[in-house]
Design a protein around this nucleic acid. Structure first.
Length: 591
RNA sequence: CGGGACGUAGCGCAGCCUGGUAGCGCACUUGCUUGGGGUGCAAGGGGUCGCGAGUUCAAAUCUCGCCGUCCCGACCA
């Protein structure tokens, strides 16, 4: 039996001044966590109980599909060199030296260690498939830890890795994880969505993220109001209404011609001045790309010009993907003048010798958004102050280096699947599954013999869940100014029994009895037996995330107590003799 | 890493401009009081004013350096 009077639950009336998001303020106020440093937190009794319950659920579901390991957080440099990530992980990796001067790092993820086990131990296709997982502490030297537990430098992750003989096998392992993740997040009581994601620096093909909508989130998610379409902003697409192109101007000849547009610099100005919709104009964005050349290894800089439909916005993530992850920045004035021989405001694609493919780096590249592919008679800058061009047709008047998707989806546009409006929300990523492919098995030399006796690399998948993020997301999803409420499955206690007057013997002993009864029926019970005023206890009970409260008060003389559901604040009188049955009933419904 | 802010008791803050005994609310301790939404009264305890230099008779206060934390951006399985 847990008695509040004997526990350390340091609740705070006020949130620390440096807490910004709801979950951070409340986790501190409720005595779940305390900060040790930037992005480093201690878990106290309540916080630890909650994360232990989350890990319990994760473990139960993962045990159905895989085997639990426990790998070291301290990793030698060699395995990270083997995968190539000793360098690519850069400053995000915590590095240290041992007494002999040997280099080590703290694991940010465990593809390397798992693959190392695989390459040493797996010999035959008969040993596949394997799904290995662990629940373990990860270290990442985030450039900017923030938002309490949302972005930290040390956290607990459930990470799993699958090894299969072929792509079909990987599909099965991937699906098993998908299903397990759904069960885990359902059991944790989260409202989540699954979105298509960018595989990012990890490589690989298919990838999905499990996201929880919250204003505190750092990721933008596009989802359909009606159907199940949902995607990361980096990947999201939308259906465009078709546009009827402008007719040919002047004598009807299909060649671009100049028109005088004095002081008309913005798309909006030009469109107004010429009395056309911005949909008929071309937006020209001048950028510079910097990055290492794949062949020479030298850091190089090249001009990159982007063309979008006038009313469209550029999506930085898509651009970054289009240039292979290199850094981009807007051109400076001098650079613009040098390439276009024209001031900004009148830039266009004509008169410049564009590179034919992205590999050729001595010429500027011209990337044209797919929304302009097939369009004709557009209006764009003439590369001459105070002039624009009419009758511009991509592919005819100028030749793009490539057509790519660069456009930023905006809320209200049509879903690519069903045509219903799309919405955009910020969200927190709580889980991620993806098909790694052969990246690690090949680079690290994991090989098995297939049924033909041929040596092949196993195909891998990688699957992660952020334990603390489940707690954080749950709080973000369910809180008010007085505190928060967790789903019973992950709450530190399921019920708090509040003895409203510690000095009243009838109330005191009834509280005791009720708490014992419920505990005997298998509930996690906290008995608030402190010698405090009822108001203090109610405030604390509302604060700390326990989903149900039993108020034991004067009505004990009538064999009655009050049950309060924290989420709704709904109150109900229940006979003490029937309290266990009452909660059994709840378990089948609200639980 | 670029921009901004902050650092005074466990938490929230004032004091700094104009240098001179370090303060308020909550929390904590003791006593009484109260007992269904942070009860009231009284008496207490608790501070290297982030750290280090400098200026000065005298520094929380002025100057310089460093450290730490938060926010925006960049970054990000």
């Amino acid at each position: 039996m847990h008695r509040w009077s004997q526990l350390f639950i340091p609740t705070l009336r006020e949130a620390p001044a440096d807490a910004e998001v709801a979950s951070h303020k409340l986790l501190v106020r409720a005595g779940y966590i305390r900060q040790l440093g930037a992005g480093i937190y201690s878990f106290l009794l309540l916080g630890n109980r909650s994360t232990q319950k989350i890990m319990g659920i994760v473990r139960e579901e993962m045990d159905k599909i895989g085997q639990e390991f426990y790998l070291p957080a301290l990793n030698p440099r060699e395995i990270w060199e083997a995968s190539g990530r000793w360098t690519t992980m850069g400053e995000n990796m915590f590095r240290l030296k041992d007494r002999k001067g040997a280099e080590l790092c703290l694991g940010m993820t465990h593809e390397e260690v798992m693959t190392d086990i695989a390459r040493k131990e797996l010999r035959s296709y008969k040993q596949l498939p394997q799904i290995w997982y662990q629940i373990q502490t990860k270290f990442r030297d985030e450039p900017r830890p923030k938002s309490g537990l949302l972005r930290v430098r040390q956290f607990i992750m459930k990470d799993a890795y699958s090894f299969d003989i072929d792509a079909a096998g990987l599909d099965v392992s991937y699906l098993k994880h998908y299903d397990a993740y759904c069960r885990i997040f359902d059991r944790c009581g989260l409202k989540y969505m699954v979105i298509d994601a960018h595989s990012g620096a990890m490589g690989g093909s298919q990838s999905q993220e499990f996201m929880v909508r919250t204003p505190a989130g750092e990721d933008q998610v596009v989802s359909c109001e009606k159907c199940s379409y949902a995607a990361n902003m980096e990947k999201a697409a939308s259906k465009l209404a078709s546009v009827e192109d402008l007719p040919l101007g002047l004598d009807g000849k299909p060649t671009p011609y100049e028109i005088h547009t004095p002081d008309q610099r913005t798309i909006e100005d030009v469109a107004n001045y010429l009395n056309v919709s911005p949909k008929h104009t071309i937006k020209t964005l001048a950028m510079m790309v910097t990055g290492k050349d794949g062949k020479t290894g030298k850091t190089e800089q090249r001009a990159l010009v982007l063309l979008l439909r006038g009313d469209h916005q550029m999506n930085e993530a898509k651009l970054s993907a289009a240039v292979g992850g290199k850094e981009t920045r807007p051109m400076q004035e001098g650079e613009i003048q040098e390439l276009f021989q024209s001031p900004a405001g009148y830039l266009g694609p004509l008169g410049i010798d564009w590179a034919k493919d992205m590999e050729v780096s001595n010429k500027p590249a011209l990337l044209v958004d797919k929304a302009l592919e097939g369009r004709t008679n557009l209006i764009g800058g003439a590369n001459k102050e105070n002039y624009h061009l009419k009758n511009l047709t991509p592919g005819k008047d100028f030749h793009p280096t490539a057509y790519v998707d660069l456009r930023r989806v905006t809320a209200g546009e049509d879903c690519p699947n069903c045509g219903s409006p799309l919405r955009i929300d910020t969200a927190v990523e709580i889980g991620h599954i993806f098909k790694l492919g052969y990246k690690y098995s090949e680079s690290m030399g994991a090989r098995v013999l297939d049924r033909n006796g041929k040596e092949v690399a196993p195909i891998m998948g990688s699957y992660g869940i952020g334990i603390e993020r489940i707690l954080t997301a749950a709080i973000e999803q369910s809180n008010d100014e007085n505190g928060f409420w967790l789903p019973p499955s992950i709450a530190p206690f399921e019920v708090v029994v509040v003895s409203t007057n510690a000095k009243d013997e009838a109330i005191r002993s009834a509280s005791e009895t009720i708490a014992q009864q419920l505990e005997a029926s298998g509930y996690d019970v906290l008995l608030d037996d402190r010698d405090e005023r009822p108001g203090v206890k109610f405030k604390d009970a509302d604060l700390v995330g326990i989903p149900f409260r039993i108020n034991v008060g004067k009505k004990v003389t009538e064999d009655t107590v009050e049950v309060v559901q924290r989420s709704t604040l709904h109150k109900e009188d229940v006979k003490i003799s029937a309290i266990s049955e009452y909660f059994q009933g709840l378990r089948s419904t609200a639980y």
